[in-house]
Design a protein around this nucleic acid. Structure first.
Lengths: 309, 309
DNA sequence: CCTAGATACTTGACTCGGTCAACAAAGCCA
DNA sequence: TGGCTTTGTTGACCGAGTCAAGTATCTAGG
């Protein structure tokens, strides 16, 4: 009898697999007018979204034959899409990275895919969209290797009222923990106001973290120049620390900045903010300048960090 | 801001698509030691699970090039796996059907796939399995063309206590609607008892339909001989009629009987049971014999129906 | 320090899955 | 009846993907 239950479930999974195989066939048609095969596109995607991977790494994760992958990479290199840098740790390996031309070749592919999927789900009502994405996340969590515990918080874009919360919490917490005066809150308020006033959804973004229905963190990514994005107002509530929300915020900023076409991200912080500095360093930012200053009623050392994309 | 939500959801869908592409690659490996390509296996599957489809039909649903499909079918035919019967309605078309050898070639493929998927989900806890299948059903319902409204009832295998319910309801309803006496209930009780006593999960099955947590129907498929399965005790509560539960029961029986290796299904009913007769006829059963008899305190005409698989 | 075996690719050779265009036969429609 | 569509077939072709052998490099063990 148990058997029968498992069998029925097996049937559902197989039917779904057949169903999604068909869907993938449809999605693949988007590649028809591009010069890339499906596999090449998958490789391009990984190259664009990883940090200098090696060939073996890609082959393993995508399940590709090493010989086949080798040829694909050679073609990319000959087309000027790819650069290889011999690994210093192991001379057999090369670290792979897309060139400017590589990114340019990938961009339309990526956009087409986004638009296609966007059109697909745009036809669904808002609750249906949510059900869809939740169901997909469920499947991934259940069948994925990683089995990483579901994040106990959620990220979302900003909504009316959020900026006020950001100003309020920055003001309160920095006063309490570091003794900064109200001029800091004024600075935050100005940043927030500017963000709302000049908000460009294509190139700027705010993330709000929520836990148990309550806001517990924020970060802004704003346009500094065509080339540079600036990360601002990274904040995590003390009671939500340890969930790696800060790291997640920075990852999201990097990903978004790449997609938005920036070449680098900059940020300004102060040396007393140890936790934040650690996160920036781990995410690949480097300290480019320090500058002592007197602000917020304190003697501080401002730091300028940057990261190439 | 809305944009940002849609974008985030698009990302989830794309990530899931990439994830499932990888999964499919793994599942495809099951075909490596078979003589069939993935596409051939898909075609075989459809041939085994459809009623005499035409080539165009298959090509459309599987998204295949007609020329390519034509060749695949020719190969199958040359290998003795497939028979074509020129359509009487349209001489350009042929109706396709697997031969005995075709079924034999498909069986191990099908079994391997079932086992592979079974092993995959057997590693999950019972509630996780349920979440998985529900999530998959959700996705299919949301992205599927059909958009058929979700069935307002559920099917499940039998559990302790179900047989009693079946006996009870058969006795009560047939007495009320047709005036049959208690000897009918005795017959049902005997069938139920035998089913439980000799139950062979590989070749026999009971389905219980539930609606709003309440049992509303039943059907049994039992072994009559190695070649023949017998459909018994098809029952749907009056208040659940119109949901096509009866048709669904018969479909499930046919599907299961095929998988279990039967060559035909037989059943016995009475001419006064109009609704049931209609369902059997629509499902491809034919009346092979009628026999007047006096049973259950009534003069009745018994009917023997059969369907080849 | 040296050697045997593993690892990270690379290359040659090949197959066959899949595409495209042209065509025959039959049906549909006015 | 005749033009247009549909169903399926065939020839010609390409390139995605596989397999096996080879080279350079690394690692582990004596």
């Amino acid at each position: 009898m148990l058997d029968a239950v498992l069998e029925e479930r097996t049937r559902v999974v197989r039917r779904f697999t057949r169903f999604y195989t068909g869907r993938l066939g449809v999605l693949r048609e988007g590649l028809l007018d591009s010069p890339f095969s499906l596999t090449e596109a998958r490789v391009l995607y990984e190259l664009a979204n990883r940090e200098r991977p090696t060939a073996t790494e890609l082959g393993r994760d995508l399940g590709l034959d090493p010989g086949y992958l080798s040829r694909i990479l050679r073609r990319f290199e000959e087309g000027g899409l790819l650069e290889r840098a011999r690994s210093e740790a192991d001379a057999r390996q090369s670290h792979l990275a897309l060139t400017e031309a590589g990114r340019a070749a990938f961009a339309p592919l990526d956009r087409a895919s986004r638009e296609q999927v966007g059109a697909l789900i745009a036809g669904l009502s808002d609750p249906d969209q949510r059900r869809l994405t939740e169901a997909m996340a469920t499947i991934e969590a259940l069948l994925g290797e990683a089995r990483e515990p579901r994040a106990p918080y959620t990220l979302r874009p900003h909504r009316p009222g959020d900026m006020g919360w950001i100003v309020h919490r920055h003001g309160a917490l920095y006063a309490q923990e570091y003794g900064w005066d109200e001029t800091f809150e004024a600075l935050v308020a100005e940043i927030a106001a500017t963000f709302i006033k000049d908000f460009d959804p294509k190139r700027e973004r705010c993330w709000i973290a929520e836990k148990d229905g309550e806001i517990v963190g924020s970060v802004l990514l704003v346009r500094q120049s065509d080339e540079a994005a600036k990360l601002r107002l990274l904040y995590v509530e003390p009671k939500a620390r340890g969930l790696r929300i800060g790291r997640r915020f920075v990852e999201e900023c990097i990903r978004f900045a790449r997609e938005a076409g920036y070449r680098r991200i900059t940020l300004w912080t102060n040396d007393v903010l140890h936790a934040a500095r650690r996160i920036y360093a781990d995410a690949g930012f480097t300290l480019v300048k320090t500058e002592p200053h007197r602000s917020f009623g304190q003697d501080l050392v401002g730091e300028y960090w940057e990261r190439e994309l």
